[in-house]
């Protein structure tokens, strides 16, 4: 039982980081209908810039904040250079553009930092685990969860309670109407990319602390996709919940199924669950179910 509880708690804590990435997926999909296949690269860039700033000798919090500033700049740049010209083009073309962005960013990161695994040194978080009664909790996981949680709370607050957030929701619902009601769509898309970059970037920085950084961190973007799909592609709280679910599923699969089917269960198990849930709830748990009036 203690083992099980530990697995679930660790899963939830890691899930917090996945949730931040899932938020990045969902917010772009929700406002523009685009599945951003470069999500993993946003995570990677966040991780590496935070690592670079930390290596310069900045305290971790300062490195994190510095990373957020860079994320904002890269977010603005990405939207302006590659996404803005695609406004009004078919969604599929835009998705292909994000594939291009993903390869380009991966190459740039490899060019700057090389392909070797880098670790934060000295380690940012204490290595010895916390003891809650008989349960061990790794401090990296715990603090990462808290940081990701704060970040998401701020972003969700922004999305739901400010007029920029309102403009984003309106654009998500009907871009044409939003435009004719005085909402500048291009600035909405800019904000979307900024938020996605910040959210994924934080996740990248935290993951870098857990496993170290290398290029393959970008594949994590795809591993989080089931979270977004389970939550409902266009629901922000759904994405967060989905992230937590995936974290737990991964850990459960790793602990209880891997012994029988060694190799890769940890990453495939969430996809299997996603398939089953899709059959049962095609819109995910919290997605919009649109019933068209014919």
């Amino acid at each position: 039982m203690v083992h099980f509880t530990e697995i679930v708690i660790t899963g939830l804590l890691v899930g917090g980081i996945y949730a931040a990435i899932a938020l990045g997926w969902a917010i772009i999909f929700k406002t523009s209908g685009v599945i951003n296949l470069a999500t993993g690269e946003l995570t990677m860039i966040g991780g590496y810039t935070c690592f670079a700033l930390y290596s310069f000798g900045l305290p971790f919090i300062a490195a994190l904040l510095g990373m957020l500033v860079i994320a904002i700049l890269v977010g603005i740049l990405t939207e302006r250079l590659w996404l803005r010209p695609m406004i009004g083009e078919p969604v599929l073309s835009v998705i292909m553009v994000t594939v291009g962005i993903s390869f380009a960013y991966k190459a740039i990161v490899a060019l700057i930092w090389g392909a070797d695994t880098r670790v934060f040194s000295p380690p940012v978080f204490p290595l010895e685990p916390l003891m809650l009664g008989p349960i061990h909790i790794s401090q990296v996981f715990l603090y990462s969860f808290l940081v990701a949680g704060i970040m998401m709370a701020v972003l969700i607050y922004f999305f739901q309670r400010t007029r920029t957030g309102l403009a984003m929701q309106a654009t998500a619902d009907d871009e044409m109407a939003a435009r004719s009601m005085g909402i500048p769509a291009s600035s909405v898309y800019r904000w979307t990319w900024i938020i996605a970059f910040m959210s994924c970037g934080i996740a990248g920085a935290l993951l870098g602390n857990i496993n170290g950084l290398n290029i393959s961190i970008s594949y994590l973007g795809l591993l989080v996709l089931p979270a977004v799909v389970i939550g409902g592609m266009n629901s922000i709280p759904g994405a967060v919940a989905g992230g937590l679910i995936i974290g737990v599923l991964e850990n459960l699969g790793d602990a209880y199924i891997s012994p029988f089917f060694p190799g890769g269960v940890k990453t495939t198990f969430p996809f299997l669950v996603m398939l089953i849930i899709m059959l049962w709830k095609p819109y995910g748990f919290w997605g919009w179910i649109k019933i068209e009036r014919m």
């Binding site: 009907d174 109407a177 004719s180």
Partner: peptide
Amino acid sequence: PPHKRAHIGISRTFQKIELFGGM
């Protein structure tokens, strides 16, 4: 751009309804 025109007092309805259906 359309949003600037909205700010100076031009407003419209659409042939094919464009409401925020989820709200």
